[in-house]
Write a protein that binds this DNA or RNA. Sequence first.
RNA 1: GUGGGUGUAGCUCAGCGGUUAGAGCACUUGACUGUGGCUCAAGGGGCCGGGGGUUCAAUUCCCCUCAUCCACCCCA
Length: 428
Amino acid sequence: MIKALRGTKDILPDEITLWDYIENTGRDIFNIYGYNEIRTPVIEEASLFIRSIGDATDIVQKEMYVFSDRGGRNIALRPEATASIVRACIENSLFHAGGVTKLFYTGPMFRAERPQQGRQRQFYQIGVEAIGSDSPFIDAEVIAMAIKFLEKLGIKKFHIKVNSLGCQKDKASVMEKHKESFRPHLEKLCADCKGRFEKNVLRIFDCKKDSCKVIAENVKTESALCGDCAEHFKQVKHGLDLLGVKYIEDHRIVRGLDYYTKTVFEITQEDLGAKDAICAGGRYNNLVKELGGKDTPAIGFAFGIERLALALAKPSSLACPERSRGKPRASSPNVFIAVAGERLYNEAFRLLNDLRKAEISSEMDYESKSLKAQMRRAEKIGAKFAVIMGEEEFKKGKVILRDMEKHSQEEMDLKDIVMKFKKVGIVL
RNA sequence: GUGGGUGUAGCUCAGCGGUUAGAGCACUUGACUGUGGCUCAAGGGGCCGGGGGUUCAAUUCCCCUCAUCCACCCCA
């Protein structure tokens, strides 16, 4: 039997309503803030991601799906959307002169990782990009919007962590400062952390080993941000205060993509297990230029939709647990036509078609099942009414209309059925 | 890539070195000769993940493999 590939999943009809809810809520919120939707291809030239995310990063080195197409082109399945969107903006001249281009997106991303809770190989993100301003107000606004999205969804128990990596020049000295503060303890760190020291110092802060934790907690690194970046970060925090955003300043926040500069942030949620980051983002002031556009500052974030769905499925994560969106039902028909006597199938089939033509959702069974079985089916799929066609009534041109919820029924003319439902004006 | 857990009916899971592998839910049929939800009864469904080994005998024990879940690395 052929099965879905490792790390991929079918999103079944029962879950789709939850996904629609997440995506539609995002659309509503992002629209309010002036963002327009964009859809870019799932495949791109691999070099786009190598140049943007960084060729030394794990995402590019170990996780990117890369292949040669029939024309020998080097293709990658996108591991994230930002690079594609920047590419699309440059290619289609979407930048507003002197203004901010605000875009949002939703769609599948691909990373060849080992699956675990909240992590798949094909996963979905919903996110935004605001391109064209370095104003700290934008930073604060974008973060506030992410929170608004979570609040609107009804998710609670999340935490916002912010940090600044500084500009391109600062990034090197920030890392150097951290290295300096760890250097005296280098011998006492675990083997993994010794590797991290060279590769990515900040990861030492995330080490699970107690011995490393103790060292990390006591290490104090002085700020290495230049004057401009320090001031920018201060303004961002001021903006967040103005908007009433409660955040934690965490100098250990570091993103796995090379293009980030200055402000970076992360939102975690308590009920998600090991993969608790529900949203991450930050500034990427050099990326547009790096990809061949004009020197343009930008900022964005991405939410993991599976992780949002995971949180929404846990009543403990919801502001209103009673309105849990764990298992929404697929759509149910308004009318089920039950037929007693196979000779009436033609009439029933015709009525079914008439109802549907009148845009009244309806179903019937073609399997010659017993009336009891048909009624059970009607109940099962949540039909609001049953039209029962029997030989006796049909001779008089009549059928039985049964209200499934009220458990009551009446005889009426077959020709009036469609009109009857139109008058009742059933709404799903 | 590394470590641990789990693979038995459509679903959730029992089970045991030894007749014909079970339960609940779901499904079908009947009690109710033309009416759903409750009850009761009957019935259909299983390469016990795959391969190899030990044994008189393996779904059960051992090895390998695959899948899956969780965790690590890393990340949304």
